[in-house]
Design a protein around this nucleic acid. Structure first.
Ligand SMILES: NC(=O)c1ccc[n+]([C@@H]2O[C@H](COP(=O)([O-])OP(=O)(O)OC[C@H]3O[C@@H](n4cnc5c(N)ncnc54)[C@H](O)[C@@H]3O)[C@@H](O)[C@H]2O)c1
Ligand SMILES: NC(=O)c1ccc[n+]([C@@H]2O[C@H](COP(=O)([O-])OP(=O)(O)OC[C@H]3O[C@@H](n4cnc5c(N)ncnc54)[C@H](O)[C@@H]3O)[C@@H](O)[C@H]2O)c1
Lengths: 212, 212
DNA sequence: TCAATTTTGTGACTCCTTTCACAAATTTTG
DNA sequence: CAAAATTTGTGAAAGGAGTCACAAAATTGA
């Protein structure tokens, strides 16, 4: 297998396979064929095999894939085998809900600090709903805390007008990955990555499909 | 311009153009070229023109596009010129945050009813933070209320184990569009549409990009 | 042991999307 | 008014991504 550029869609599907394999593993299923996995994930079986083939040969001809083994391999590929430490900026509506999101606990993504600019939200506040509470700091402490807590991903849940400013702070603090929930186009230097979660874009998409 | 199948990516970009044009309009900008719009949206100028050309000729050669006019046209294409009435199912963490999301008020998407299965969340409850409060009903009333309030889109914010069941109820109530936040693969009959918002998929994506 | 069966991995093909490049339309300038 | 400048709309080319089809590898069963 020689090197090729890997399509972004492949990565998205790997994440899907990962979720399905986890379910299968929980059910105690040992082996899965590309056809079964494809069926569960609603894709083409050849697509499953091709996606996996970008990264190696994980299956056994005539048999299929060992669920646990394939799951581990996919996690290693995605980098979701390691613990990712995240910071949340903007402890408002959405931010609070993310802080209280219990499933993060079960997964390899953890919010280890939160930031806000509004003193009432900051002073002594921790998110109580979690087993392990999350401290809320004033935004002006972001650089220190990021360094101290080895934060690698930032979640932006401030109003859109603040998003670029917050992104700049995260970049300055060398947080290389940003997940942006504010509906604003933000730009970061080479070497940094932003992924957007735009509810409205998805709703517009739905609206289009329903209208046509 | 003859009919062609329109790429999904084109629809996503139209939504992006729409957001940018709205900003420009607010700033009072009257005219925009494909190059300027492309620059703002970080795409290729030819892409902008081609995307628009699927639907008609909206520009003037040598001039560009009238901001207001183009914005209206894009909204008409997306179906985001009309009011969309939505129901939210699952008034937990995330659900409450969506109910309190003020920007929905400014936009053409409105949550007009919410549902839950947990009586304490239902009885007499309304979401107070909004100017116009949202009533929370017991899930067993969904069919009536959907009909009565002419609901066209459903938001699923229940635990993943309940997502398919809720989707089935929405389908039965003839809600043709579903926005699913629960990390579970749900299926609906022909003629219905599901869009997923999987936080973990996006985080996996970030993790992959940061690891490689 | 060997034929039949299963299922992977992958080259070739098809289909779809993006980018390029330029004629056509319009405005601006001299 | 004509030439220069601008910018759209679009056919053609290039580039990616998805599907097909089959050889290769492994298992099963007689
Ligand atoms: N609430 C939702 O369900 C929802 C849904 C989709 C998108 N969004 C988007 O998510 C973002 C947050 O939405 P929300 O409803 O939680 O808003 P919110 O107003 O409740 O919260 C915003 C928070 O950001 C803080 N903040 C403002 N400027 C800051 C800065 N410079 N540094 C640090 N913190 C700062 C505010 O103090 C506040 O606590 C918005 O951009 C919104 O458009 C929200
Ligand atoms: N909280 C977040 O920030 C977040 C982030 C990403 C994804 N999600 C996903 O969104 C979903 C909701 O998360 P949450 O944190 O709000 O959970 P939650 O437990 O706080 O809320 C779930 C709500 O659904 C209700 N419910 C359960 N079964 C129901 C049914 N059959 N019909 C109607 N209502 C029902 C419950 O009573 C509860 O109020 C989950 O699937 C979660 O994985 C949440």
């Amino acid at each position: 297998m020689k090197y090729q550029k890997i399509p972004e869609a492949t990565i998205r599907r790997l994440s899907r396979y990962s979720r399905c394999l986890e379910e299968m593993d929980e059910k105690g299923e040992k082996v899965v064929s590309s056809a079964q996995l494809a069926n569960k994930c609603i894709v083409n079986p050849a697509q499953v095999r091709k996606d996996l083939a970008y990264f190696g040969e994980f299956g056994i001809r005539g048999v299929g894939y060992y669920v646990k083994d394939l799951l581990n391999n996919i996690k290693k590929i995605l980098g979701s085998d390691k613990e990712w430490r995240m910071a949340l900026v903007g402890v408002g509506n959405l931010g609070s809900s993310l802080l209280a999101y219990k499933d993060f606990l079960k997964q390899n993504y953890t919010i280890v600090a939160a930031f806000d600019i509004d003193p009432p939200k900051v002073i002594g506040r921790v998110s109580e709903k979690l087993g392990k509470p999350v401290e809320v700091f004033h935004i002006n402490r972001i650089k220190d805390v990021v360094k101290e807590r080895k934060i690698e991903i930032g979640l932006i849940t401030t109003p859109p007008s603040e998003a670029q400013g917050v992104a700049d702070l995260l970049v300055e603090a060398e947080v290389r990955g940003i997940l942006n929930f504010a509906p604003a186009q933000i730009t970061v230097p080479e070497g940094f990555v932003v992924k957007d979660v735009f509810f409205t874009t998805i709703l517009d998409n739905l609206a289009y499909l329903l209208s046509n």
